[in-house]
Nucleic acid binder design. Sequence first.
DNA 1: AAGGAACCCAACCGCGATAAG
DNA 2: TCTTATCGCGGTTGGGTTCCT
Length: 440
Amino acid sequence: MDGGEEMTAATADARGLKKGPWTGTEDAILMEHVKKHGEGNWNAVQKNTGLLRCGKSCRLRWANHLRPNLKKGSFSPDEEKIIIELHAKLGNKWARMATQLPGRTDNEIKNYWNTRMKRRQRAGLPLYPHEIRQGIDDDHHNDDEFEFEFDSFQFQNQDLQNHQNMIQYTNSSNTSSSSSSFSSSSSQPPKRVCLDPLISTNQGLDELPATPNFQMFSLSENNDTLVDVEDDNNHFAFSLPLSSSASSNELCSPDQLLELISENSTRNKKDIDAMSFSSLLMGDHEMGASFFPLGLDNAVLELPSNQTPSHSLTSNTILDNGVPYNPPPTNSGLLDALVEEAQALSRGGMFKDVRASSSNLCENQDKPVEMEFENRLNSSHQSSFEMQTEASNLASPSGMFVGNHQGNNMAEPYNAPPSSSVDPIASLGSCFWGNMPGIC
DNA sequence: AAGGAACCCAACCGCGATAAG
DNA sequence: TCTTATCGCGGTTGGGTTCCT
């Protein structure tokens, strides 16, 4: 009841009480008082000691700095891991997290997390390392408490973030995986793109581990196309022409692309290297629309020959609400098509055959498929997720592909929000991600 | 060397829950 | 049962420091 009689800092100020950093003398007075009278009754501190601090300030000072057994210094790797795990499970329950980290305060943990999150956001990285998310998924597959806490947190706070982290771009020189057909024509190692939203990100981008969870892409020898560098027979092939102009079919090299990006951004080139490539494709809020004139809207997604684009909308497709879907012209770009697709979906809702084929695509891969976060959750927490997405009326229909990646057919259709509330770019992100075989 | 950006952290703020009278 | 006091929590702010250009 701070608005009531409890001394707030504001009222403390008005009564001549001090604000701001504590001095050593004040600390000593407070410690002496606690030693004599114990914790609690913080407003009595001022009365008893003459300390010009409000009770609330005293409590905070004691709890965060003066009480015994407080650990000082930066978090150990173990502590960091615990924090990440706890946050994945609890969300922003700093006090609860602090109980699992003896000697650490909620404020410390909160500061640590916020700093870390900012940093990762700037780098376009997912918040949770893959192994943590995988562990969470495994550990709590049937954990009701977890399901509730996790769902309520995850999709309120991180839906957008996860989408933004769909594609990671790096110019790593570690190009061990190779394909002869894609050898670089220049002296520089090929630029690589990792299409996996579940990247473990404790490492730098140059240190991405070569695990089956990673889908590494490179640039074609013409530097005009993002291509899958893996050469597995059943592996889907992917190419993404990089056009330098929205209105032409001219292609630009990755370096040109980076230059263009740099010119259109306040970021420096180093940041561009590390940033989420999804920003280019989807235009996150920070990057804005400055990337779309680069011509990525002319991009075309090529699907594997044995994986016909049945997940793409065709003229035969009937949306759930019975509205026939008119596909964009076949020669339209990926972005246009996906925007159109997303808009159609937002108009007409989800339809079952798309979701099923999307799942099949995942199933057909010979590598273990890492489901994107929501879809993995959906496989075990589907109903709660749908409730969440509907309740929060997500502009981005992240629950669009509500089936799991193991080929199970979908349950209920996604009920898209009214088209007026749908950001086509955000929709695109969901659509792109949901449909991308290598990413699902 | 200077200026700005980014980082870090302590402290403040406001609100809800609970205890006490 | 109502009012008041206190506690606890999560979000936010602001200032000092470090890093980068």
